[in-house]
């Protein structure tokens, strides 16, 4: 309470209202698991932990959980990098390896919305084609914040 600076928030005040409005559409709860390990990408760890915590404060539909890389949960989901985010890992296999900063923030927020609402931009013909898939696919998209 006395002394020390208040920690700066990741989500600025003027953006909070916009996000609250965006999240009004959320239906299903979305558990978001954040894994971090001190000494590995520390600034990105701090950013990611703070971001997910603050998103959880904006809507009861986002359920953050914080773990250490190396704990039982990280072993269960084969997480070895810091930071790593798993979106609803009991239902889906959607992972962010690294922090969703800069331009990737938009896609990250849309991922949360799609997961909660259960609706994507796939057309009916896209869905038909994916229905025919018989073998596993591990898709990795490499991005940068700009």
């Amino acid at each position: 309470m006395f002394g020390g600076k208040k920690k700066a928030r990741v989500i600025q005040q003027d953006k909070e209202e916009i996000l609250k409005k965006k999240f009004e559409i959320l239906k299903k709860e979305v558990p978001i698991y954040v894994f971090s390990r001190e000494g590995e990408n520390d600034p990105f760890n701090r950013f990611t932990v703070a971001l997910i915590k603050e998103l959880g404060e904006l809507t009861p539909r986002i359920i953050p959980e914080f773990h250490e890389v190396g704990d039982e949960v990280s072993k269960k989901y084969d997480v070895s990098r810091s930071p790593t985010i798993l979106i609803d890992p009991e239902a889906y296999h959607i992972r962010y390896t690294g922090s969703p900063a800069g331009e990737e923030m938009r896609s990250f927020l849309n991922t949360i919305v799609m997961t909660s609402v259960g609706r994507t931009l796939l057309s009916s013909s896209d869905r038909e084609r994916l229905a025919a898939l018989k073998d596993g696919r591990h898709i990795q998209i490499f991005v940068t914040p700009t």
């Binding site: 296999h93 959607i94 992972r95 390896t97 690294g98 922090s99 896609s107 994507t120 994916l130 490499f142």
Partner: peptide
């Protein structure tokens, strides 16, 4: 699209968004 595909076929599709500068070895 990767995420949408993973949501559509959670039984077969995994989607990983990799931030390249934090994971240079993978890049």
């Amino acid at each position: 699209m990767a995420v949408a595909s993973a949501l559509e076929r959670p039984d077969l599709i995994t989607a990983e968004i990799v931030e390249a500068s934090e994971n240079e070895d993978l890049a």
